[in-house]
Design a binder for these strands. Sequence first.
DNA 1: GCGATATCATTAACATGTTAAATATATAAG
DNA 2: CTTATATATTTAACATGTTAATGATATCGC
Lengths: 159, 159
Amino acid sequence: MTEQSSAKSKLQQDALLPRNTRRSLPIALLRAREAVMSHFRPMLAEHEMTEQQWRVIRILAEQEVVDASEMADKAFILAPSLTRIIRSLEERGIITKHKDENDGRRVLLRITPAGMAIINEVSPESRLIYDRLEKRFGRDKIEQLLDMLDEVATFNETQ
Amino acid sequence: MTEQSSAKSKLQQDALLPRNTRRSLPIALLRAREAVMSHFRPMLAEHEMTEQQWRVIRILAEQEVVDASEMADKAFILAPSLTRIIRSLEERGIITKHKDENDGRRVLLRITPAGMAIINEVSPESRLIYDRLEKRFGRDKIEQLLDMLDEVATFNETQ
DNA sequence: GCGATATCATTAACATGTTAAATATATAAG
DNA sequence: CTTATATATTTAACATGTTAATGATATCGC
Protein backbone atom coordinates (compact mmCIF):
# COMPACT_ATOMS: atom_id res chain seq x y z
CA MET A 1 0.00 0.00 0.00
CA THR A 2 2.59 2.51 1.17
CA GLU A 3 5.00 1.14 -1.39
CA GLN A 4 2.49 1.79 -4.13
CA SER A 5 1.77 5.37 -3.22
CA SER A 6 5.39 6.26 -2.60
CA ALA A 7 6.31 5.65 -6.23
CA LYS A 8 3.46 7.85 -7.32
CA SER A 9 4.38 10.77 -5.14
CA LYS A 10 7.98 10.40 -6.30
CA LEU A 11 6.82 11.10 -9.79
CA GLN A 12 4.66 13.99 -8.71
CA GLN A 13 7.36 15.83 -6.82
CA ASP A 14 9.29 16.32 -10.05
CA ALA A 15 9.51 20.05 -10.66
CA LEU A 16 9.24 19.59 -14.40
CA LEU A 17 5.76 18.11 -14.26
CA PRO A 18 3.20 19.93 -16.40
CA ARG A 19 0.31 21.90 -15.02
CA ASN A 20 -2.67 20.00 -13.75
CA THR A 21 -4.90 18.98 -16.63
CA ARG A 22 -8.07 19.86 -14.75
CA ARG A 23 -7.51 23.56 -15.31
CA SER A 24 -6.18 23.26 -18.82
CA LEU A 25 -7.60 25.95 -21.05
CA PRO A 26 -7.52 23.90 -24.28
CA ILE A 27 -9.42 21.02 -22.67
CA ALA A 28 -11.88 23.37 -20.98
CA LEU A 29 -12.61 24.96 -24.35
CA LEU A 30 -13.09 21.52 -25.85
CA ARG A 31 -15.48 20.43 -23.10
CA ALA A 32 -17.57 23.57 -23.32
CA ARG A 33 -17.78 23.26 -27.07
CA GLU A 34 -18.81 19.63 -26.89
CA ALA A 35 -21.48 20.44 -24.30
CA VAL A 36 -23.05 22.89 -26.74
CA MET A 37 -22.59 20.84 -29.89
CA SER A 38 -24.03 17.66 -28.43
CA HIS A 39 -27.40 19.39 -28.52
CA PHE A 40 -27.10 20.23 -32.20
CA ARG A 41 -25.62 17.10 -33.70
CA PRO A 42 -28.66 14.79 -33.43
CA MET A 43 -30.83 17.39 -35.13
CA LEU A 44 -28.28 17.86 -37.92
CA ALA A 45 -27.87 14.11 -38.28
CA GLU A 46 -31.54 13.85 -39.16
CA HIS A 47 -30.68 15.82 -42.29
CA GLU A 48 -27.44 13.92 -42.90
CA MET A 49 -25.54 17.09 -42.10
CA THR A 50 -22.35 17.40 -40.14
CA GLU A 51 -21.65 20.38 -37.98
CA GLN A 52 -19.13 21.73 -40.51
CA GLN A 53 -21.48 21.26 -43.45
CA TRP A 54 -24.11 23.16 -41.51
CA ARG A 55 -21.72 26.05 -40.89
CA VAL A 56 -21.05 26.24 -44.63
CA ILE A 57 -24.65 26.37 -45.78
CA ARG A 58 -25.62 28.73 -42.97
CA ILE A 59 -23.09 31.22 -44.23
CA LEU A 60 -24.41 30.79 -47.77
CA ALA A 61 -27.89 31.48 -46.47
CA GLU A 62 -26.67 34.82 -45.12
CA GLN A 63 -24.65 35.83 -48.18
CA GLU A 64 -25.54 34.80 -51.71
CA VAL A 65 -22.05 34.28 -53.12
CA VAL A 66 -19.01 33.32 -51.09
CA ASP A 67 -15.67 32.17 -52.44
CA ALA A 68 -13.81 29.30 -50.87
CA SER A 69 -11.20 31.41 -49.07
CA GLU A 70 -13.81 33.62 -47.48
CA MET A 71 -15.78 30.53 -46.52
CA ALA A 72 -12.74 28.96 -44.90
CA ASP A 73 -12.29 32.14 -42.84
CA LYS A 74 -15.87 32.52 -41.78
CA ALA A 75 -16.65 28.88 -41.08
CA PHE A 76 -13.21 28.37 -39.57
CA ILE A 77 -12.53 25.31 -41.68
CA LEU A 78 -9.12 24.51 -43.17
CA ALA A 79 -8.82 24.51 -46.95
CA PRO A 80 -8.35 20.76 -47.40
CA SER A 81 -11.41 20.01 -45.27
CA LEU A 82 -13.40 22.61 -47.12
CA THR A 83 -12.52 21.06 -50.48
CA ARG A 84 -14.01 17.77 -49.32
CA ILE A 85 -17.06 19.39 -47.78
CA ILE A 86 -17.76 21.37 -50.95
CA ARG A 87 -17.49 18.21 -53.02
CA SER A 88 -19.95 16.39 -50.77
CA LEU A 89 -22.47 19.24 -50.63
CA GLU A 90 -22.29 19.77 -54.40
CA GLU A 91 -22.81 16.09 -55.13
CA ARG A 92 -25.88 16.14 -52.94
CA GLY A 93 -27.31 19.19 -54.71
CA ILE A 94 -27.16 21.39 -51.63
CA ILE A 95 -24.74 23.98 -53.03
CA THR A 96 -23.33 24.92 -56.45
CA LYS A 97 -19.72 25.64 -57.30
CA HIS A 98 -18.42 27.80 -60.18
CA LYS A 99 -15.08 29.23 -61.20
CA ASP A 100 -14.75 32.98 -60.67
CA GLU A 101 -14.61 34.53 -64.16
CA ASN A 102 -12.44 37.39 -62.95
CA ASP A 103 -9.98 35.17 -61.11
CA GLY A 104 -9.63 31.62 -62.36
CA ARG A 105 -8.07 30.47 -59.12
CA ARG A 106 -11.15 31.19 -57.08
CA VAL A 107 -14.23 29.08 -56.59
CA LEU A 108 -17.63 30.70 -55.99
CA LEU A 109 -20.21 28.96 -53.84
CA ARG A 110 -23.98 29.37 -53.73
CA ILE A 111 -26.76 27.59 -51.88
CA THR A 112 -29.48 25.78 -53.85
CA PRO A 113 -33.23 25.66 -53.09
CA ALA A 114 -32.63 22.19 -51.67
CA GLY A 115 -30.07 23.73 -49.36
CA MET A 116 -32.42 26.51 -48.35
CA ALA A 117 -35.03 23.88 -47.52
CA ILE A 118 -32.63 22.33 -45.02
CA ILE A 119 -31.88 25.77 -43.58
CA ASN A 120 -35.58 26.40 -43.10
CA GLU A 121 -36.16 23.06 -41.42
CA VAL A 122 -33.20 23.20 -39.06
CA SER A 123 -33.11 26.88 -38.14
CA PRO A 124 -36.15 26.96 -35.86
CA GLU A 125 -34.92 24.10 -33.75
CA SER A 126 -31.43 25.57 -33.76
CA ARG A 127 -32.75 28.85 -32.39
CA LEU A 128 -34.63 26.97 -29.74
CA ILE A 129 -31.44 25.43 -28.47
CA TYR A 130 -29.64 28.77 -28.41
CA ASP A 131 -32.55 30.28 -26.55
CA ARG A 132 -32.36 27.54 -23.96
CA LEU A 133 -28.65 28.20 -23.57
CA GLU A 134 -29.27 31.92 -23.14
CA LYS A 135 -32.02 31.32 -20.65
CA ARG A 136 -29.77 29.00 -18.68
CA PHE A 137 -26.79 31.35 -18.40
CA GLY A 138 -28.20 34.76 -19.15
CA ARG A 139 -27.51 36.83 -22.21
CA ASP A 140 -25.02 39.06 -20.40
CA LYS A 141 -22.92 36.15 -19.25
CA ILE A 142 -22.81 34.67 -22.72
CA GLU A 143 -21.87 38.02 -24.22
CA GLN A 144 -19.15 38.32 -21.64
CA LEU A 145 -17.91 34.84 -22.48
CA LEU A 146 -17.89 35.65 -26.19
CA ASP A 147 -15.87 38.78 -25.49
CA MET A 148 -13.29 36.85 -23.52
CA LEU A 149 -13.06 34.18 -26.19
CA ASP A 150 -12.52 36.85 -28.83
CA GLU A 151 -9.74 38.25 -26.73
CA VAL A 152 -8.08 34.86 -26.33
CA ALA A 153 -8.40 34.37 -30.08
CA THR A 154 -6.01 37.29 -30.54
CA PHE A 155 -3.29 35.44 -28.65
CA ASN A 156 -1.76 34.17 -31.88
CA GLU A 157 -1.73 37.62 -33.48
CA THR A 158 0.10 39.43 -30.72
CA GLN A 159 2.96 36.95 -30.55
CA MET B 1 -15.14 47.69 -60.78
CA THR B 2 -16.53 50.14 -58.24
CA GLU B 3 -20.07 49.27 -59.28
CA GLN B 4 -19.47 45.63 -58.77
CA SER B 5 -18.01 45.88 -55.30
CA SER B 6 -20.27 48.56 -53.91
CA ALA B 7 -23.19 46.44 -52.75
CA LYS B 8 -21.13 43.85 -51.05
CA SER B 9 -18.40 45.94 -49.55
CA LYS B 10 -21.00 48.02 -47.71
CA LEU B 11 -22.17 44.88 -46.02
CA GLN B 12 -18.63 43.88 -45.28
CA GLN B 13 -17.78 47.23 -43.69
CA ASP B 14 -20.13 46.62 -40.80
CA ALA B 15 -18.25 43.55 -39.74
CA LEU B 16 -15.57 41.60 -41.47
CA LEU B 17 -17.21 38.52 -40.08
CA PRO B 18 -20.98 38.29 -40.08
CA ARG B 19 -22.40 38.80 -36.64
CA ASN B 20 -24.08 35.45 -36.62
CA THR B 21 -20.91 33.55 -37.23
CA ARG B 22 -18.67 35.81 -35.24
CA ARG B 23 -20.92 35.67 -32.19
CA SER B 24 -21.54 31.96 -32.47
CA LEU B 25 -20.46 30.27 -29.28
CA PRO B 26 -19.27 27.00 -30.89
CA ILE B 27 -17.10 28.84 -33.42
CA ALA B 28 -15.82 31.28 -30.81
CA LEU B 29 -14.76 28.32 -28.67
CA LEU B 30 -13.05 26.80 -31.69
CA ARG B 31 -11.19 30.00 -32.54
CA ALA B 32 -10.01 30.55 -29.00
CA ARG B 33 -8.84 26.99 -28.74
CA GLU B 34 -6.97 27.18 -32.01
CA ALA B 35 -5.30 30.43 -30.96
CA VAL B 36 -3.91 28.69 -27.90
CA MET B 37 -3.06 25.40 -29.55
CA SER B 38 -1.21 26.97 -32.47
CA HIS B 39 1.50 27.91 -30.00
CA PHE B 40 1.89 24.36 -28.75
CA ARG B 41 1.68 22.29 -31.90
CA PRO B 42 5.06 23.18 -33.44
CA MET B 43 6.81 22.33 -30.20
CA LEU B 44 4.97 19.01 -29.91
CA ALA B 45 5.67 18.25 -33.57
CA GLU B 46 9.39 18.37 -32.82
CA HIS B 47 8.79 15.29 -30.68
CA GLU B 48 6.43 13.70 -33.19
CA MET B 49 3.61 14.21 -30.70
CA THR B 50 0.08 15.25 -31.46
CA GLU B 51 -1.90 17.36 -29.07
CA GLN B 52 -3.99 14.36 -28.04
CA GLN B 53 -0.97 12.12 -27.48
CA TRP B 54 0.52 14.86 -25.32
CA ARG B 55 -2.65 15.01 -23.22
CA VAL B 56 -2.43 11.27 -22.65
CA ILE B 57 1.17 11.15 -21.49
CA ARG B 58 0.76 14.31 -19.44
CA ILE B 59 -1.99 12.60 -17.46
CA LEU B 60 0.22 9.55 -17.01
CA ALA B 61 2.95 11.81 -15.68
CA GLU B 62 0.55 12.96 -12.96
CA GLN B 63 -0.84 9.56 -12.06
CA GLU B 64 1.17 6.38 -12.33
CA VAL B 65 -1.60 4.03 -13.46
CA VAL B 66 -4.69 5.07 -15.38
CA ASP B 67 -7.17 2.78 -17.08
CA ALA B 68 -8.50 3.57 -20.52
CA SER B 69 -11.92 4.75 -19.36
CA GLU B 70 -10.46 7.17 -16.84
CA MET B 71 -8.03 8.38 -19.49
CA ALA B 72 -10.84 8.99 -21.95
CA ASP B 73 -12.61 11.07 -19.29
CA LYS B 74 -9.60 13.10 -18.23
CA ALA B 75 -8.10 13.71 -21.67
CA PHE B 76 -11.53 14.16 -23.18
CA ILE B 77 -10.84 11.73 -25.98
CA LEU B 78 -13.45 9.32 -27.33
CA ALA B 79 -12.82 5.62 -26.84
CA PRO B 80 -12.16 4.77 -30.51
CA SER B 81 -9.62 7.58 -30.81
CA LEU B 82 -8.00 6.54 -27.56
CA THR B 83 -7.60 2.97 -28.79
CA ARG B 84 -5.59 4.22 -31.76
CA ILE B 85 -3.56 6.64 -29.70
CA ILE B 86 -2.68 3.95 -27.16
CA ARG B 87 -1.58 1.64 -29.97
CA SER B 88 0.66 4.32 -31.46
CA LEU B 89 2.22 5.36 -28.14
CA GLU B 90 2.82 1.75 -27.13
CA GLU B 91 4.46 0.89 -30.44
CA ARG B 92 6.79 3.84 -29.97
CA GLY B 93 7.71 2.75 -26.45
CA ILE B 94 6.25 5.84 -24.81
CA ILE B 95 3.64 4.05 -22.70
CA THR B 96 2.90 0.47 -21.64
CA LYS B 97 -0.46 -1.28 -21.70
CA HIS B 98 -1.54 -4.22 -19.52
CA LYS B 99 -4.76 -6.00 -18.77
CA ASP B 100 -6.20 -5.31 -15.34
CA GLU B 101 -5.86 -8.56 -13.40
CA ASN B 102 -8.96 -7.81 -11.33
CA ASP B 103 -11.11 -6.88 -14.31
CA GLY B 104 -10.14 -8.43 -17.61
CA ARG B 105 -12.09 -5.85 -19.55
CA ARG B 106 -9.96 -2.98 -18.42
CA VAL B 107 -6.65 -1.82 -19.80
CA LEU B 108 -4.08 -0.20 -17.52
CA LEU B 109 -1.73 2.42 -18.90
CA ARG B 110 1.64 3.60 -17.61
CA ILE B 111 4.26 5.96 -18.92
CA THR B 112 7.79 4.67 -19.71
CA PRO B 113 11.10 6.42 -19.03
CA ALA B 114 11.15 7.35 -22.71
CA GLY B 115 7.77 8.99 -22.19
CA MET B 116 8.98 10.82 -19.09
CA ALA B 117 11.92 12.09 -21.11
CA ILE B 118 9.51 13.72 -23.55
CA ILE B 119 7.55 15.20 -20.66
CA ASN B 120 10.70 16.70 -19.22
CA GLU B 121 11.75 18.17 -22.52
CA VAL B 122 8.39 19.65 -23.47
CA SER B 123 7.10 20.81 -20.08
CA PRO B 124 9.40 23.80 -19.60
CA GLU B 125 8.52 25.27 -22.97
CA SER B 126 4.87 24.45 -22.40
CA ARG B 127 4.93 26.35 -19.11
CA LEU B 128 6.57 29.26 -20.83
CA ILE B 129 3.69 29.53 -23.27
CA TYR B 130 1.11 29.34 -20.49
CA ASP B 131 3.00 31.97 -18.56
CA ARG B 132 2.92 34.23 -21.57
CA LEU B 133 -0.82 33.66 -21.87
CA GLU B 134 -1.30 34.44 -18.19
CA LYS B 135 0.83 37.56 -18.42
CA ARG B 136 -1.16 38.68 -21.44
CA PHE B 137 -4.62 38.25 -19.91
CA GLY B 138 -4.00 38.08 -16.20
CA ARG B 139 -4.41 35.05 -14.00
CA ASP B 140 -7.74 36.24 -12.63
CA LYS B 141 -9.24 36.63 -16.06
CA ILE B 142 -8.12 33.18 -17.12
CA GLU B 143 -9.48 31.67 -13.91
CA GLN B 144 -12.75 33.45 -14.57
CA LEU B 145 -12.81 32.12 -18.12
CA LEU B 146 -12.13 28.59 -16.89
CA ASP B 147 -15.00 28.90 -14.43
CA MET B 148 -17.39 30.04 -17.13
CA LEU B 149 -16.29 27.25 -19.44
CA ASP B 150 -16.86 24.72 -16.66
CA GLU B 151 -20.33 26.12 -16.26
CA VAL B 152 -21.10 25.88 -19.97
CA ALA B 153 -19.81 22.32 -19.89
CA THR B 154 -22.72 21.44 -17.61
CA PHE B 155 -25.20 22.44 -20.30
CA ASN B 156 -25.56 18.86 -21.48
CA GLU B 157 -26.14 17.52 -17.97
CA THR B 158 -28.91 19.85 -16.95
CA GLN B 159 -30.79 19.50 -20.23
C1' DG C 1 5.99 40.29 -72.80
C1' DC C 2 8.62 37.29 -69.52
C1' DG C 3 10.27 35.18 -65.60
C1' DA C 4 10.08 35.12 -60.60
C1' DT C 5 6.95 35.20 -56.93
C1' DA C 6 2.56 35.03 -54.63
C1' DT C 7 -2.03 33.27 -54.05
C1' DC C 8 -5.92 29.83 -54.37
C1' DA C 9 -7.44 25.41 -54.51
C1' DT C 10 -6.61 20.59 -54.56
C1' DT C 11 -4.34 16.25 -53.45
C1' DA C 12 -1.85 13.20 -50.39
C1' DA C 13 -0.91 11.00 -46.08
C1' DC C 14 -1.72 10.31 -41.62
C1' DA C 15 -4.25 11.41 -37.05
C1' DT C 16 -8.45 12.19 -34.74
C1' DG C 17 -13.74 12.80 -34.38
C1' DT C 18 -18.09 10.44 -34.57
C1' DT C 19 -21.55 6.87 -34.56
C1' DA C 20 -22.77 2.10 -34.71
C1' DA C 21 -21.67 -2.58 -34.23
C1' DA C 22 -18.83 -6.33 -32.47
C1' DT C 23 -16.16 -8.61 -28.85
C1' DA C 24 -14.78 -9.83 -24.31
C1' DT C 25 -15.46 -9.86 -19.58
C1' DA C 26 -18.12 -8.95 -15.35
C1' DT C 27 -22.25 -8.84 -12.70
C1' DA C 28 -27.06 -9.68 -11.62
C1' DA C 29 -31.27 -12.65 -11.71
C1' DG C 30 -33.18 -16.83 -11.48
C1' DC D 1 -24.64 -22.77 -12.18
C1' DT D 2 -26.55 -20.63 -16.09
C1' DT D 3 -28.69 -17.15 -18.66
C1' DA D 4 -29.52 -12.38 -19.31
C1' DT D 5 -27.80 -7.92 -18.88
C1' DA D 6 -24.33 -4.39 -18.25
C1' DT D 7 -19.72 -2.52 -18.90
C1' DA D 8 -15.01 -1.84 -21.21
C1' DT D 9 -12.62 -1.93 -25.19
C1' DT D 10 -12.04 -2.60 -30.00
C1' DT D 11 -13.25 -2.49 -34.86
C1' DA D 12 -15.44 -0.47 -38.85
C1' DA D 13 -16.79 3.23 -41.81
C1' DC D 14 -16.88 7.66 -42.95
C1' DA D 15 -15.93 12.85 -41.99
C1' DT D 16 -12.81 16.27 -40.58
C1' DG D 17 -8.12 18.10 -38.74
C1' DT D 18 -3.37 18.90 -39.93
C1' DT D 19 0.83 19.59 -42.54
C1' DA D 20 3.29 19.36 -46.78
C1' DA D 21 3.42 19.16 -51.60
C1' DT D 22 1.36 20.03 -56.18
C1' DG D 23 -1.01 22.39 -59.91
C1' DA D 24 -3.21 26.38 -61.70
C1' DT D 25 -3.76 31.16 -62.13
C1' DA D 26 -2.43 36.14 -60.91
C1' DT D 27 0.60 39.66 -60.10
C1' DC D 28 4.93 42.01 -59.68
C1' DG D 29 9.43 43.64 -61.44
C1' DC D 30 12.09 44.35 -65.18
